[in-house]
Simulated assay, not measured.
Amino acid sequence: MENTQQSSLADALVIEHKSLSELDDVHIIINWNEIEKTLSSLYSSVPGAPAYPPLMMFKILILQAWYNLSDEALEKQIARDLMFRRFIDLSLCEPVPDHSSIWRFRQLLNTENLLEPLLEQINTHLEQNSIIVALGSINIIDATVTEAKQSRKRKGKDDNNTQDPEASYNVKTAVDGKRKTTYGYKMHANTDEDGFVKKMSYTPGNVHDSQEFDKLLDTYKTKDKIKTCGEVYADSAYANKKNNEKIGKQNNKVLHRAYRNKPLTKQQKQDNKQRSSIRYVVERTFGLLKLHHGLGKARYLGLARNKARAQLIAMSHNLKTGMNIFKEMQRLKGLRGYCVQ
């Protein structure tokens, strides 16, 4: 999508460099006009139209999640980074949105319940460009813990506990048998085989993984019942009679669970080994979200704000992954064209 804004003399004087166009491929794989239509309700439904175009503000939040920046750091980065300005279509002659405007717009997206539709819309655009495989896609479901911004018990004013009141304790037994306790939240996600986040939810840390299972499943309705789209891979925490019936025998790739006096059979162990080799994709995705996007530590107090941040992180991850796949597709297309010649 081309920049539709009027270029200033200052913009015309900028010397082109490949570093300025690093994010340009995103404009090819995403139809920003459709995203803008989704955001257009923000003009009419909320008193006082935003000072900046909603699409520009949304792109700013994508950059924030992409580069793991605070609101204040993001404001500074936009002011001095030509690539950021190019991505959001902000002229050198225009003022930069301040950090409070960024914060308010993120809150607005959350209160208007637009973040989930936006994630679905981005994924649809990636499907339309053959970057996400829709037909025959699998479901890899898991959860990861995010430490709360204020996770330790400390005395604040009036001797009140300063811990985030909406977070809670998560206790997990590690591979080495040691128990690890984290005070925070959980991101539950369904990814495909390429690591794209298809669906996600966000809860306090004490919510059991299996409780979010229904929200994450990729399903479709038939005349008789709701069926699962594709095979479902998950760890043994999701293994129970209810889930097994929901998934169906053919699509059930949940790890077998051993019970007291009922150890796993040789075949079940082999099944688990094969299923784990595919299930690791969701763990790799969580690792990337924590390493590059800061998902491991909550930035705000409260469930709603941190959920909004996690949803934006999922979108930015999908865009980043999609752009890398698109570049590889273009490279291979160029090689094929070269071979033909």
Score class of each variant (00 low, 15 high):
253 K>A: 05
299 R>Q: 12
151 S>R: 11
272 N>W: 03
305 R>C: 02
80 R>E: 11
289 L>E: 12
38 T>E: 15
152 R>N: 12
292 H>T: 02
326 F>D: 06
65 A>T: 08
143 A>D: 03
281 V>P: 02
140 I>S: 04
14 V>H: 06
23 L>D: 11
28 I>V: 12
297 K>D: 05
129 N>V: 11
328 E>G: 00
250 Q>S: 06
195 G>E: 01
166 E>A: 04
216 L>T: 01
21 S>L: 05
6 Q>V: 13
184 G>S: 07
267 Q>Y: 02
117 P>C: 03
278 I>L: 08
318 N>Y: 08
154 R>N: 07
143 A>H: 00
199 K>I: 01
112 E>Y: 10
145 V>M: 00
147 E>N: 09
166 E>F: 10
217 L>K: 09
88 I>P: 01
93 C>M: 10
287 G>N: 02
92 L>K: 01
113 N>P: 00
321 T>G: 00
244 N>Y: 07
96 V>P: 05
47 P>I: 11
164 D>V: 11
167 A>N: 00
4 T>W: 10
213 F>P: 03
81 D>V: 01
236 S>Q: 08
157 K>P: 00
62 I>T: 05
92 L>V: 02
238 Y>S: 08
57 M>R: 10
320 K>C: 04
292 H>I: 03
31 N>H: 07
290 K>N: 06
334 G>N: 12
260 R>L: 09
92 L>D: 01
290 K>R: 14
79 A>E: 06
301 L>K: 15
14 V>G: 04
269 K>C: 08
63 L>T: 14
152 R>M: 10
197 V>Q: 10
118 L>V: 06
124 T>W: 00
191 T>A: 08
117 P>F: 07
212 E>V: 09
242 K>Q: 09
308 A>F: 07
296 G>Y: 13
88 I>N: 05
184 G>Y: 08
153 K>G: 00
229 C>K: 15
325 I>A: 13
169 Y>R: 06
60 I>S: 01
78 I>S: 00
288 L>N: 09
303 L>Q: 06
118 L>T: 02
248 G>S: 00
4 T>V: 13
94 E>T: 11
116 E>A: 13
272 N>F: 05
